[in-house]
């Protein structure tokens, strides 16, 4: 009796384990499905002209997203100019100077900001830049992405800087080196690899953002390298083509999606590789 009850408990435990495994598989399933369809639908449309040509008008077959790919990088450049110095120096404050209470507050605000829907950043920057300047612009799009990056990078860089052992700070200060020089030349330099990793991850994350660009960068069918004019971006172009009624544009959307996903995943994989060797070095 007792024996069989115990056996039943063991079986139940096994059943629940199997159920949890099933759930894990279901969680991963969309990843596999999305990848499968991206490759099936998109691979055929990714060719040389996709990377070199401008979008063709409706009805003409072919064309590419060259301007959108370059535009995405331009937007990321502006975003990095805003987000990286602000975020890293903010992280320096948290890691090197802040008091327990102030740090708690600032971290809390960062976590809250990271939960703000990205579309909100779009309309805020619209009100902040597009309305006064009276034009959608690359600058506005970059600023929106930069704002999203700031809290991400503050949190990341604080974490990375706290990994730098205190012994290095003490050794530098004991040489009579001023604190700010110690922070710049010793702490930031020691943490450089981790910081670069974090910045790349943040860039990969905002590279796929569409909602904040809808009313800021706006999109553009042509080349634009002027900060004050609308600019194309890969996610915007994917969105525009996906909701269009034309089959050829749908194919282009899949191709764009494949390129965008490949870029973000490449960064993610590269970063994982970097962090692995970093944590191995620190463990040593």
């Amino acid at each position: 009796m007792r024996e069989s009850f115990y056996r039943w408990r063991k079986i139940k435990s096994g059943l629940v384990s199997a159920l949890c495994l099933l759930c894990a598989v279901l969680v991963i399933a969309p990843l596999g499905l999305v990848f499968f369809h991206l490759l099936r639908e998109g691979a055929s449309a990714v060719n040389w002209s996709f990377f070199t040509n401008l979008p063709k008008p409706v009805g003409e077959i072919g064309g590419g997203m060259a301007n959108a790919i370059v535009g995405t990088f331009e937007l990321l450049g502006i975003a990095a100019l805003i987000g990286v110095p602000t975020g890293v120096l903010g992280g320096v404050y948290l890691a090197e100077y802040g008091s327990v209470r102030v740090n708690w507050l600032l971290r809390f605000i960062c976590d809250i900001l990271n939960g703000v829907p990205s579309i909100i950043w779009g309309i805020v920057v619209y009100g902040l830049i597009v309305v006064p300047v009276k034009s959608f612009s690359a600058l506005a799009g970059g600023v929106a992405l930069g704002f999203i990056m700031i809290p991400l990078i503050v949190r990341m860089s604080e974490e990375v800087l706290l990994l730098v052992p205190n012994g290095y700070r003490e050794a530098a200060l004991a040489l009579g080196i001023a604190r700010w020089k110690m922070t710049l030349h010793i702490v930031l330099k020691t943490a450089l690899k981790g910081l670069v990793t974090g910045v790349l991850l943040a860039l990969a994350r905002v590279a796929g953002e569409t909602a904040p660009l809808l009313f800021t960068a706006f999109g553009n069918r042509f080349w634009n390298h002027n900060l004050h004019d609308p600019i194309a971006a890969l996610p915007l172009q994917i969105f525009a083509y996906a909701i269009s009624p034309y089959d050829d544009w749908h194919r282009q959307a899949w191709a764009g999606a494949l390129v965008l996903v490949s870029m973000t995943f490449l960064v993610n994989v590269a970063v994982r590789f970097l962090t692995r060797s970093r944590s191995a070095a620190l463990a040593k």
Binding site: P30, L31, V34, E41, E209, P235, I238, F239, A242, F265
Partner: peptide, 16 residues
């Protein structure tokens, strides 16, 4: 990796 898929791409997959 699933978290890293941009929303617009999941939307594309959703629609089609």
């Amino acid at each position: 990796m699933l978290a890293a898929i941009p929303s617009v791409i999941l939307g594309l997959w959703g629609v089609f």
